[in-house]
Design a protein around this nucleic acid. Structure first.
Length: 476
RNA sequence: CGGGGUGUAGCGCAGGCGGUAGCGCGCUUGGUUCGGGACCAAGAGGUCAGGAGUUCGACUCUCCUCACUCCGACCA
């Protein structure tokens, strides 16, 4: 009945950082490799990523995007064409300088992002307004030479998708930027059970080379924010730098308007830190590699094993990701193991259940155990998966709303960000105020939320007139 | 790049006075178990991170190097 104390992981409230690392490893999501900052995505962790891919690929294709694949390397000469972009990424590029025995004249940058490659390619394939829009996406890995690394949150290499699009009009490109941000928001609400704050980045925080950057921000259990996805509007900057042009209907040569957008395996970190507890991972059903695990309580009881196998087949037929664990570990060990791995539902079945023609289904998120008649298992499981998702989302949403607080003074802001959560502040728009906040509290501006409802006239930092509602928080 | 920490069996850790290494978990085999991380028995498993120095002798002392990890500055 009672939750067993799990000695193998650190408690969340004792040391959140250690808890996070413990979960990543003990739930078998990843392992460290021999190269710093490069992790091994183990099958269970990679499967979560595959479920995220499934969701997004469906949405991307519905909205007219095609998947492509670009090279891993970017010639340095090409990379240098867009100035702000270069300055933003130069400090963290990994560069290949040698091919075989010969030194490379034009060094090859391992892509940190692929704006350059896409734009260069677009210059070749776009000639007419009839060629627009171009809606491409790629799933790949990128490399950024990070100083400090943490599994899924910040790695020298990570997996992501990057969409890159070209449009004939500014309006269309701006719409695209926001449409994709909405899809990310849907991903959070419908699949990850993670509520995001959507908004625009300040000048200081926006992407190198973009005119505008929008982001989805999630709030972790320890009160720190995590930028979980971004969508950028580039205007014609890259297009002009890379000489992308087309002949419009009116006979004029024009440069197209560009966007890019991406989410990465960082989302896995966000799932872990939003939903996890002291017994380990808690996975939202939509992306859980195993949605329900069946555990026969008495291993060598032929009758219950047979019923378990029948139930497994029924669930499989309904498209539910089910696993039946017939290994010779004890039932208690299995309970703990699948809790650690965050499996949303567990079905227990033993002789005592069989006598009553029922089984027990336990919900990972609440620990509740329910008696379910054997003939109702399939329909109950479907319902329960939906219930678990909703409960997880609502819980996270409540936590988020309780951790957004309006502040009117610097002291209040400091108190809020130190306690964990977002300080909602009216801001003048001057980067000097952002810098002052960062210096004193280490918190940064996360975004200017779309719902801009002013609640004060002056910026508490400098005392000048305030124009924007901004959220500040300590962030990963 | 600055500051700390750790490197001994797959994992987590002991160890010492300088004399060539041990515990727990895990793993293998056999048996008994099975409703919240079962138990018994028998096994396998080690260039003590690397290099140099001191010494008759270094896993232990000295110096250097490397790796990983955590905290800051930078980023998804």
């Amino acid at each position: 009945m009672a939750q067993i104390k799990n000695n193998s992981i650190t408690s969340r409230d004792v040391d959140f950082t250690q808890w996070y690392t413990d979960v990543c490893k003990k739930a078998e999501l990843m392992d460290y490799s021999t190269v710093k900052g490069f992790i091994i995505y183990r099958p269970y962790g990679y499967a979560i990523w595959e479920e995220i891919q499934n969701y997004l690929n469906k949405r991307f294709k519905e909205t007219g995007h095609s998947n492509v694949y670009m090279p891993l390397v970017i010639p340095e000469s090409l990379f240098n064409k867009e100035k702000e972009h270069v300055e933003g990424f130069a400090p963290e590029t990994l560069i290949a300088t040698k091919g075989g025995e010969s030194t490379l004249e034009d060094r090859l940058i391992i892509r940190p992002t692929s704006e350059v490659l896409f734009t260069d390619h677009y210059a070749k394939i776009i000639a007419s307004y009839r060629d627009l829009p171009k809606l491409y996406n790629q799933w790949c890995n990128v490399v950024r030479w990070e100083k400090t690394t943490r599994p899924f949150l910040r790695g020298s290499e990570f997996l992501w998708q990057e969409g890159h699009t070209m449009h004939a009009s500014e309006t269309e490109a701006r719409d695209e930027t926001l449409r994709m941000l909405d899809i990310y928001d849907d991903l959070g609400r419908e699949a990850l059970a993670v509520p995001f704050v959507k908004g625009r980045k300040t000048e200081k925080e926006k992407f190198a080379g973009a005119l505008e950057t929008y982001s989805i921000e999630a709030l972790m259990h320890d009160g720190k924010a995590l930028q979980s996805g971004t969508s950028h509007y580039f205007g014609q900057g890259f297009a002009k730098a890379f000489n992308v042009k087309y002949l419009d209907k009116d006979g004029q040569i024009k440069a197209p308007y560009q966007t890019s957008w991406g989410v990465s395996t960082r989302l896995i970190g966000s799932i872990i830190m939003v939903h996890g507890d002291d017994n380990g991972l808690v996975l939202p059903p939509v992306v859980a590699p195993i949605q329900i695990v069946i555990i026969p309580v008495k291993m060598n009881d032929e009758e219950s094993v047979k019923v378990c196998q029948d139930l497994k087949k029924q669930l499989l037929d309904e498209g539910i990701r089910v696993e039946l664990d017939l290994s010779d570990k004890s039932a208690g060990w299995k309970f703990s193991e699948y809790e650690m791995k965050g499996v949303p539902l567990r079905l227990e079945l033993g002789p005592r259940d069989l006598a009553l023609n029922k089984c027990v289904i336990a919900k990972r998120n609440t620990g509740e155990k329910l008696d379910v008649k054997l003939e109702d298992v399939t329909s109950s499981v479907k319902d329960l998966l939906a219930v678990v998702h909703n409960e997880m989302y609502q819980k996270a949403l409540t936590f988020l709303s309780e951790h957004i607080k309006e502040v009117h003074t610097f002291d209040e802001l400091e108190k809020v960000v130190n306690a964990g959560g977002y300080a909602k502040m009216m801001w003048c728009g001057d980067v000097a105020c952002e810098n002052a906040i960062k210096e004193r509290t280490t918190a940064t501006s996360r975004c200017m939320p779309f719902a801009q409802i002013p609640f004060d006239d002056i910026c508490p930092i400098c005392g000048k007139e305030a124009h924007y509602v901004v959220l500040f928080a300590k962030a990963y």
